[in-house]
């Protein structure tokens, strides 16, 4: 029997002003797996994520999450269904402390101590910086805060946009390790990423976007092995993206 995806986009178009960015995106994110969304800069990956969250409206097409249509839902309603989002700019509140950022992790105000302790175990630096303003953290620490805040509350789907962007290699390795922990815990993740090592270590499935369309979908392992396919789809082999 075919697996019912947790998140499904069918023929989604998105316009931003007079620009037509997404041209009928079809994407399925199965539950308990890590789905990678790859593509060159400007392919429409971030627009696809923002459209799922309702931050930009889909002009046509349908988006379903956990069996319910969410295409026209407002962003807070979509988030309340159990979708956590870590944007490309991380979305931490720089003027608030790390503690205050975590207080906003759960809209119900029902943050479980055990989950928070697990986050602190994964990112010990956040406990050390607990009372520091988030704006004073390094780029890597901000990314840990953004991901930590997203996983501190219970969610059914975690959407992360380029977590390794601009980070030092050591920080990327630490982040990858934390995300592998989430993968092992069967967390459903939709991840946009350019770093091959991270993509290969995390991805179960992959979809590649080009000019606002999905042009390839398959297993991450298969794409990782196929250098000519990588070159054709992404311009360069994934190895060169490390």
């Amino acid at each position: 029997m075919a697996e019912i995806p947790l998140l499904e986009l069918a023929g989604v178009h998105t316009h931003i002003g007079r620009y037509h960015i997404l041209h009928g995106v079809d994407l399925a994110v199965p539950e308990g797996r890590v789905s990678m969304l790859l593509g060159r800069n400007g392919a429409g990956k971030t627009t696809a994520l923002r459209t799922i969250l309702g931050l930009w409206r889909a002009s046509y097409g349908m988006i379903h999450f956990a069996g319910a249509e969410i295409t026209a839902h407002a962003t807070p309603d979509i988030a309340r269904l159990g979708i956590a989002y870590v944007p490309e700019n991380m979305g931490v509140f720089a003027s608030l402390t790390v503690a205050e950022n975590f207080r906003l992790a759960d809209w119900r105000g029902d943050l479980r101590p055990t989950r928070l302790d697990a986050v602190m175990a994964a990112f010990p630096v956040l406990a050390q910086k607990w009372r520091a303003r988030a704006g004073t953290l390094s780029g890597g620490q901000k990314q840990m805060l953004a991901i930590g805040r997203a996983i501190a509350a219970e969610h059914r789907l975690l959407i992360i946009d380029e977590p390794s962007k601009g980070l030092a290699p050591g920080m990327v390795a630490q982040l990858t390790e934390a995300l592998i922990g989430l993968k092992q815990a069967r967390t459903t993740i939709l991840l946009v990423e350019q770093n091959f090592a991270m993509a290969q270590a995390l991805g179960d499935h992959v979809a590649v976007m080009e000019d606002g369309r999905i042009v390839y979908r398959g297993d991450m392992a298969a794409l990782a092995k196929d250098i000519p396919l990588q070159t054709r789809l992404l311009g360069l082999s994934l190895a060169s993206h490390q």
Binding site: L55, A74, A79, Y85, P87, G91, F93, L104, D106, W107
Partner: peptide, 8 residues
């Protein structure tokens, strides 16, 4: 935007 993405 981020406040809304957190469900508020």
């Amino acid at each position: 935007e981020m406040v809304e993405a957190l469900g508020f």
